[in-house]
Design a protein around this nucleic acid. Structure first.
Length: 559
RNA sequence: AGUCCGAUGGUGUAAUGGUAGCACUACAGAUUUUGGUUCUGUCUGUCUAGGUUCGAAUCCUGGUCGGACUACCA
């Protein structure tokens, strides 16, 4: 009964490599740069690299690509590790080693010296502008640097001087001697080392020269015996360079494979843009629940398992893509539907008075915590004469197929009784201030002998025992599907209504003690999670994770 | 313009020379004390023009369209 699951192109490559005995085990790595928070695109890469290792009995390292001390910080290292662990727990695996490119700075320096000795690298005194100017273009070859033919001894001496701090930032660089006319611009004597008198988050002030990505990444892979170095498509032009360094150095031949990065509709994914949103305060931080970051999604209430399932079902390939946000939301609902206890909360309240219910009487009704969970159990919910119901659940002049309250209409109060609307009051502005109804005592939930069938069921909260809470309703961060592809500044497409704060929502009494991170389904309203930052004891803040599917809203929209 | 990569329903992803499938979405229906869930069904696709072949989404050639590259970032 084995279900044939088709392989993605990387799994095919790996299975072939394993089958032909090229590798006994695979070894992958996830190489984040600690200069920002991880986002959903990284989640794809995490699921891929760690998932592949798990599936084929291999290993996967965590390696921080920390070769640029100017932008990299320990804060980012910590958040990245936390996020990865959170996802890895859902996958059911863990990283096999925690490494840093900076662990290999000594080794990389030796590699550079080796290339100089082989006549394959030289110290260039040219300025950044000069190097750019002599680089050529896509249609024209570049020009050799006047320093290209220095002797090996001179290069050795100058490079040592660079390391010793004899020169200022930008005064000299070490370049590979390849071909200034190469059609691949990256092979036109690429930079290997630059001078940066900057404090590094791990090596401190030991170094004032730092390797460039191209001279670090492949060699780090090689040092760790990585078999399959998986990265995104934009590195495809780097592959010849990746191979060139490894070949000339004569070290373990790790191989690079590229896949298309994952894009999500109605958001942006580049770290540069996300950093801009944070710095310019368009959001409250990297973990703002509207951000496509792992930490934002966690705070929003997206389960790790939902993110992992999303990555798995969407898969990978090599073509440009924009995945519909709805797919992610589907997986979020799928998880939460199984796990989130149902509770009642009235977001936009209006008073409902049951005129024939005895004043001063309260009963405790048994309500099911989760119809999708056999072991969910029940809870007691107070019910009495005055309730809060949702303002949207009443219409003075209801259209056909409105299965809620209106003059003369009948609904069931969830878990309680069937009521019929008998009247309502309005203030001078025409706002409904109070709805009056009568109830059928014999229609009590679970003991209904009324024989009545009602079309609609609405939620409610008992007025005098209700607690208030803050609720934050989130919507997509951008108004357009692909902000990065639009004309002009992506920030002009920000959805200014992406956050709506409701400061006085009525909730069931039990909800007052909800703990940060706890998740609920507010009946008919959506899934909510207790905010981990802004909740206070006894006064939780609920973030709306995602709405429920709403076929009534769709029906209404048809008009 | 040079090099490289890509093109399958609205979206994402399979089919590796032999029935174009799956998921999401949309639509219709059944069930439902959440207009939720669940279940059933339906619609929609191989960029284009040639070629090879008994047979092409798949292989070949030309074209079209989209993307990446021209940082002392990764």
């Amino acid at each position: 009964m084995s279900e044939e699951k088709s392989l993605n192109f990387l799994e095919e490559i790996i299975e072939q490599h394993l089958a032909e005995g090229r590798y006994e085990h695979i070894h992958t790595r996830f190489p984040p740069e600690p200069n920002g928070y991880l986002h959903i695109g990284h989640a794809s890469s995490i699921c891929l690299n760690f998932g592949l290792a798990k599936k084929y009995g291999g290993k996967c390292n965590l390696r921080f690509d920390d070769t640029n001390p100017v932008t990299e910080e320990t804060e980012y290292v910590d958040s990245i590790k936390y996020d990865i662990k959170w996802l890895l727990d859902a996958i059911g695996t863990s990283w096999d080693g925690e490494y840093y490119a900076s662990d290999y700075f000594d080794k990389l320096y030796e590699f550079a010296v080796d290339l100089i000795k082989k006549g394959l690298a030289y110290v260039d005194d040219s300025s950044a502008d000069e190097i750019a100017a002599t680089k050529g273009s896509t249609t024209e070859p570049g020009m050799n640097s006047p320093y290209r033919d220095r002797s090996i001894d001179e290069n050795l001496q100058l490079f040592a001087g660079m390391k010793e701090g004899k020169y200022k930032d930008g005064e000299k660089v070490l370049r590979a001697k390849i071909d200034m006319a190469h059609p691949n611009l990256l092979l036109r004597d690429p930079l290997m080392y630059r001078i940066k008198h900057a404090h590094h988050h791990r090596t401190g002030d030991k170094w004032c020269i730092y390797p460039m990505y191209d001279f670090a990444h492949g060699q780090c892979d090689s040092i760790e015996n990585i078999t399959h170095s998986i990265c995104t498509l934009e590195f495809i032009h780097h592959r010849p360079l990746y191979d060139w360094f490894i070949e000339k150095l004569g070290i373990y031949p790790s191989k690079q494979y590229e896949f298309a990065r994952r894009n999500l509709s109605y958001t942006v994914m580049s770290k540069r843009k996300l950093l801009q949103l944070v710095n310019e305060k368009h959001v409250a931080g990297w973990d703002d629940p509207r951000m496509p970051t792992i930490s934002g999604m966690r705070r929003r209430g997206y389960p790790a398992q939902a993110i992992v399932n999303f990555c798995d079902t969407v898969g990978i390939a090599k073509r440009e893509n924009v995945v519909d946000l709805g797919v992610l939301e589907f997986h979020v609902r799928e998880q939460l539907n199984k796990t989130a206890p149902r509770m009642m909360a009235v977001l936009n309240p209006v008073k409902l008075i049951i005129t024939n219910y005895p004043e001063g009487q309260t009963e405790e009704l048994d309500m099911e915590n989760n119809p999708e969970d056999e072991n969910g159990g029940t809870r007691k919910v107070p019910f009495s004469r005055e309730l809060w119901i949702e303002r949207d659940d009443f219409m003075e002049e209801p259209p056909k197929k409105f299965f809620r309250l209106g003059p003369g209409l009948t609904v069931r109060l969830k878990g309680a009784y069937i009521v019929q609307c008998e009247g309502f009051s309005k203030d001078d502005n025409g706002n409904i201030t109070e709805i009056r109804c009568t109830y059928l005592p014999e229609s009590k939930s679970g003991h209904d002998t009324s024989g009545l069938k009602v079309k609609g069921t609405i939620h409610w909260v008992n007025a005098h025992t209700a607690k208030t809470a803050e609720v934050r309703l989130y919507d997509r961060l951008f108004k357009v599907e692909n902000p990065a592809a639009e004309e002009g500044d992506f920030k002009s497409y920000i959805n200014e209504h992406s956050l709506q704060v409701l400061s006085a929502v009525y909730v069931e009494p039990a909800l007052a003690d909800a703990q940060p991170g706890q998740q609920f389904q507010f009946l008919r309203m959506g899934y909510f999670t207790v905010d981990s930052k802004d909740s206070a004891p006894g006064r939780p803040v609920f973030n709306r994770t995602v709405t429920l599917k709403d076929s009534w809203a769709k029906e209404k929209a048809k008009d």
